[in-house]
Design a protein around this nucleic acid. Structure first.
Lengths: 197, 197
DNA sequence: ATCGCTAAGTTGATTCGTTGCACTTTTCTT
DNA sequence: AAGAAAAGTGCAACGAATCAACTTAGCGAT
């Protein structure tokens, strides 16, 4: 939850931003991403197209309005973990706690479908996560006490941020997360043969 | 190296494609990616803009003309590895053999700078690699004898394909590759503190 | 209270990547 | 040599995004 804006100006600004995001999401869900133009969104929100781009960096960003909170939460999970808990455990538990329940929420079903069925949105979502590599790896490096650009920390951050893409579409997301963390903790081994179905 | 085309038609097709790619790269290096339009490239290659898009899926693809060979080589390294060699070793040795020498080649310096200094190209390059996840993970799964969508194999493929992005800009690329494979082999551990400079 | 300053929003034009369509030219097949 | 298939052309058009000049509304300090 973000701090509520103070001045009237800020409130109005936030209001228009919200109006644009709401209008966009509704239209996207109704007609599909590619069947909605920026002008449609601007008209629905009763603003000009230029205003849309003042608030959002591009069309894709209209869809992912609040997913930045998940990044802050992830970093907080590392920085404020209980003493004695390893970084890997903190990440694992936090992810198990929050991500699957978010994505399994019934309201999110059509949203997930929208993203999955639109290639440009899939691409944007993936890049959105890996773009957070810098801040997450900085947090990890701080906790360990090494330079921010320490390779092991950057790599771990990157691998952890790959998890949403890897776990997407799995029947049992929790098991998927556990399996990936097992690789990160103990190293990769050839999986045993599965019984043929 | 790809097999030379057979018929005259194929040769001409390859020639125009090459002319477009050459013109594009030269202009990009001269003026910078954003300062060159598709129409400039088409004029320089003496074709119409429509022809450019017949050969390349988009503007970014003009820059990465031959990087697909590296993917095939990577998969071959897994499939045709010496018997008794582990998959991880095969990947590690192949990458150490080929990638750093390619990127340290002097001719590639300005190309690398072009990509690094153009955000949209950086993004495309990253996505280009992770897009190969499917074929690499399929190769790994085949060698291990499990389903193509086995999570551990997909995860390994993804992590290995993250390596270019992680090793980019490191002073010692070989050491970086080794360090990342160490994580993938034995699991992640907090790195020891470095001596303060 | 009000006077400017700043930031939000508008309007309209403009650039640029990309696609579609109807058409011509070249090459392959038989 | 005829006709099918594919490469390329020319042009118009669409949508996303940006820019410049302008209007409006809220803010802060006198």
């Amino acid at each position: 939850m973000t701090v509520p804006p103070v001045s009237r100006r800020d409130r109005k600004k936030a209001a228009t931003r919200q109006a644009i995001a709401d209008a966009a999401l509704q239209l996207f869900l109704e007609r599909g991403y590619d069947q909605v133009g920026i002008r449609d969104i601007a008209d629905a929100a009763d603003v000009s197209t230029a205003t849309v781009f003042k608030h959002f960096s591009g069309k894709e960003a209209l869809v992912f309005d609040q997913d930045q909170d998940r990044e802050s939460a992830l970093i907080a999970a590392v920085r404020e973990r209980p003493s004695g808990q390893s970084i890997l455990d903190a990440l694992r538990l936090h992810i198990l706690d929050t991500w699957p329940s978010i994505e399994e929420h019934p309201q999110a079903a059509e949203f997930t479908h929208l993203v999955d069925s639109t290639p440009v949105l899939r691409a944007y979502a993936e890049r959105m996560w890996t773009r957070y590599t810098d801040s997450l790896s900085a947090a990890i490096a701080d906790e360990v006490g090494v330079d921010h650009d320490d390779l092991a920390c950057v790599a771990l951050a990157r691998f952890v941020l790959d998890i949403p893409a890897l776990a997407r579409g799995r029947q049992d997301r929790r098991a998927a997360v556990e399996a990936i963390f097992d690789i990160l903790t103990h190293g990769w081994e050839p999986p045993g043969k599965r019984p043929a179905p």
